[in-house]
C-alpha cells in the first residue's frame, strides 16, 4: 500500500502549487454565519489542522471542501478541481472520514470496505484487492468477517479511516479523527496517521484536542466563530501567543483564597479549572511562586506553553470550555 500512496505525492497541484486552496469562503444558515470568509492552502504531503471548539465552523468547512455542502461565496480548488462548480469530481480524488464513523451495521468489516470502493468506482476485483490491502495495513485483517457492531470504538474509527483510503485518494479530509476514543485507541489512530503522513498522503483534519494538533499537524489554523484567527506551525503559534512557562497549582479548597490573593497582589494572570490553577508570569516568563511554598495544600509544577494557551490568548476563552 505504501508504494501506491507514495505515488499520490505526484497529485495534480493547483496553480499555486497547493493541493487544497480555500479562498474567502462563507457559509450562512439563515442569518447565522457558520463560516465567515476563511482562506488557507494545504501543500502536498502536508498535514494541516483546523483547531477550534465545537461550533467554530470546522465541520462545515470540511463539508464544503468535500462538496457535500454548497458555499455561499468564495472558491475552493482541490487537486485542480473547482469544488464549487464540480462537487462530484472532487470526491473522486478525496477520501473523507466523517465525524461519526458512518459504518454500515448491516455489513461485515470487509463488505464495508469493498462496497465503498465499488460505489466509488473501483471494479469488483480491484475493490476486493484494495480492501484486503487496507485491512492488512490497519491491522484489521483478523476482523474482516466481523459484524461492524462487534468492533471497539478504536477499531471502528480505524475502519472509517481505512475506508477513506480505498480509492488511494490524493487528499484525505478527517473530521475529528480521535474524538470519543480512549487514550490507547487514540494513540493507535495517531500512529497510523503518522504512517500515512510518511507515505506522503496530504491530510486536512479538524480537532478540538490541542495535543492531537501538536502531534499530527505540520501547520494549523485556529478557528473560532467561523473565522481563522491565526495560522502557522504549532511551534510558531506557541512562540507567538503562549507564555514560555505556565505554573500549575493543585490547590485544596481551604487554601484557594490565599492563593488568589497572592496572585492578584502580584498582578499575575491565572485561570482556574476545578482545583487546578494555571498561572502565567509577567511577559510570559516563569511566574515567581516562592511565597506559596509554605502554604498548606498547594502543590506546584511547571509546564511549557501549549496550543491551549495559544487559544486562550487569542480568544480569551478556554478551548475545553465549549
Amino acid at each position: 500500500m505504501t508504494n501506491e500512496t507514495q505515488q499520490k505525492n505526484d497529485v495534480v497541484r493547483n496553480p499555486d502549487g497547493s493541493v487544497i486552496h480555500v479562498d474567502n469562503i462563507r457559509k450562512l444558515y439563515g442569518d447565522f454565519v457558520a463560516v465567515d470568509g476563511i482562506s488557507f492552502a494545504v501543500q502536498p504531503g502536508e498535514t494541516y489542522g483546523l483547531l477550534g471548539p465545537n461550533g467554530a465552523g470546522k465541520t462545515t468547512t470540511m463539508r464544503m471542501l468535500s462538496g457535500l455542502s454548497p458555499v455561499n461565496s468564495g472558491n475552493i480548488i482541490v487537486a485542480g478541481i473547482d469544488v464549487v462548480k464540480d462537487n462530484r469530481a472532487v470526491r473522486e480524488v478525496m477520501g473523507v472520514v466523517t465525524q461519526h464513523d458512518g459504518l454500515d451495521n448491516g455489513l461485515t468489516v470487509f463488505q464495508n470496505l469493498f462496497l465503498h470502493g465499488f460505489l466509488a468506482g473501483l471494479s469488483r476485483k480491484k475493490s476486493k484487492a484494495r480492501a484486503h490491502e487496507v485491512l492488512e495495513f490497519f491491522g484489521l485483517r483478523d476482523r474482516s468477517k466481523s459484524n461492524v457492531y462487534e468492533l471497539s470504538g478504536g477499531m471502528k474509527r480505524r475502519l472509517a479511516i481505512a475506508r477513506s483510503m480505498m480509492t488511494t485518494p490524493a487528499v484525505i479530509v478527517m473530521d475529528e479523527p480521535s474524538t470519543g476514543l480512549d487514550p490507547q485507541s487514540r494513540n493507535r489512530v495517531w500512529e497510523e496517521l503518522a504512517i500515512l503522513k510518511e507515505a506522503g498522503v496530504t491530510v486536512l483534519l479538524s480537532t478540538h484536542y490541542m495535543e492531537e494538533a501538536t502531534i499530527l499537524c505540520d501547520r494549523l489554523s485556529i478557528m473560532d466563530n467561523g473565522k481563522i484567527l491565526d495560522e502557522g506551525t504549532p511551534d510558531q503559534m506557541i512562540e507567538r501567543h503562549a507564555p514560555k512557562e505556565v505554573a500549575q497549582l493543585r490547590v485544596d479548597p481551604a487554601s484557594l483564597r490565599t492563593v488568589r490573593d497572592y496572585l492578584n497582589v502580584r498582578e499575575m494572570s491565572f485561570r482556574e479549572v476545578g482545583a487546578l490553577v494555571s498561572v502565567t508570569g509577567v511577559n510570559g516568563d516563569r511566574p515567581d511562586l516562592s511565597g506559596l511554598t509554605d502554604v498548606e495544600g498547594v502543590r506546584s509544577s511547571y509546564r511549557s506553553g501549549n496550543l491551549e494557551d495559544v487559544f486562550l490568548s487569542i480568544t480569551g476563552r478556554e478551548l475545553r470550555d465549549e
Binding site: 468535500s66 457535500l68 462530484r88 469530481a89 470526491r91 473522486e92 477520501g95 473523507v96 466523517t98 461519526h100 464513523d101 458512518g102 459504518l103 454500515d104 451495521n105 448491516g106 465503498h116 460505489l119 466509488a120 468506482g121 475506508r163 477513506s164 480509492t167
Partner: peptide
Amino acid sequence: DNDVYETALTTPIT
C-alpha cells in the same frame, strides 16, 4: 439515521 447515505455521499454519488 445510521449515516449510510452520508457515507455513500463521500463517494462521487448524488
